[in-house]
Computed example of a mutant assay.
Amino acid sequence: MSATEFFDSPQGRRIAYHRSEGQGPWVVFLGGLKSDMEGTKAVHLEAWAKAQGRAFLRFDYSGHGESSGTFEEGCIGDWHEDTVAVIEALTKGALVPVGSSMGGWQALLLARALPERIHGLVTVAAAPDFTEDGYWASFTDAQKQALEELGHVELPSDYMEPYIISKRMIEDGRNNLVLRSDLSLPFPVRCLQGTADTAVSTETALRLVDHVACDDMRLTLVKGADHRFSDAACLALIEEAVVEVLRAAG
């Protein structure tokens, strides 16, 4: 496996990445909250892309994996800046972002920021607007008070140690919502969602499909698949979705 490389962003953050040259469009993996570029989906897609001779990029947001900073300092807007900076510096031409969970939100923000470069889009258990519709909407009065007084709350996770959610993350999330205003995706979009996902609901996936203006958008529900969406069958579905988007867009 190639060694991790690093990019210093215009915002002064040191971003870790793995990049492999090949035929465009570039497939770019956008990971989830507190995940990193060494996850099963990211590494599997890289191997697939290399076997296909396809250009590929995976990276760690600031406060994640090998990149600089701490998770508690970050927010959706910071990670959007990281995404745009890395892509502008390390890729050229058309893109096919593959966004997992929070990475699905990041993919939608990327499509809004660089629409002319998006060839197609794939999401896996996309979690747009989760800071508002998931966290804030479910906070108790005591948690909202703690957010004001302490500046953060601690939330349990089904997959790792508790999340520390800062007041800044909630407030910044409101500046990056994508389901409250028009969102046009004029390219092929494929969304994958497990019915046994306890982190992102099927209703969220349906809401996204209903909200977006797109002439070629499909949602695949996988019975029994959980939020990881990383067993062999699910990984094959991700591959198929990427191939379909590449083919559909010409």
Score class of each variant (00 low, 15 high):
P97T: 07
R168Q: 11
S100M: 07
L121P: 00
H211Q: 07
T204N: 11
I164S: 12
Q193F: 08
P128M: 04
V98F: 01
V153H: 00
D210M: 09
L183T: 07
E154M: 11
L90F: 07
D182V: 14
N176P: 07
T198D: 15
V189M: 03
T140F: 08
D172L: 08
R117T: 04
L208M: 12
V96H: 01
A107L: 08
T131Y: 13
G103E: 01
T123M: 06
R117E: 01
D141P: 10
S166V: 09
L208W: 02
S166R: 05
N175W: 14
A125L: 05
G134R: 05
R190F: 04
L192R: 00
A142R: 11
K167F: 09
R207A: 11
A125Q: 05
F130I: 13
V153L: 03
S166F: 06
A113I: 07
G173Q: 02
S101A: 11
I165M: 06
L183F: 09
S166H: 05
D158R: 15
L147Y: 01
L121W: 04
P188A: 06
M160K: 15
F139M: 11
S181V: 11
T91I: 11
L185H: 02
I170E: 00
R112V: 03
P97M: 03
S201I: 10
L192M: 10
L177H: 07
A111W: 00
G151Q: 06
T198E: 14
L90E: 07
H211N: 06
G99W: 02
L155K: 07
L177Q: 11
V212F: 00
A94S: 14
R112L: 09
H211Y: 03
L155Y: 09
E148G: 12
R168K: 13
E203D: 15
M102T: 02
V153M: 02
E154I: 12
V96T: 04
G104D: 02
C191G: 09
H211F: 10
A107F: 02
L206W: 14
L155M: 13
A196W: 11
A137P: 06
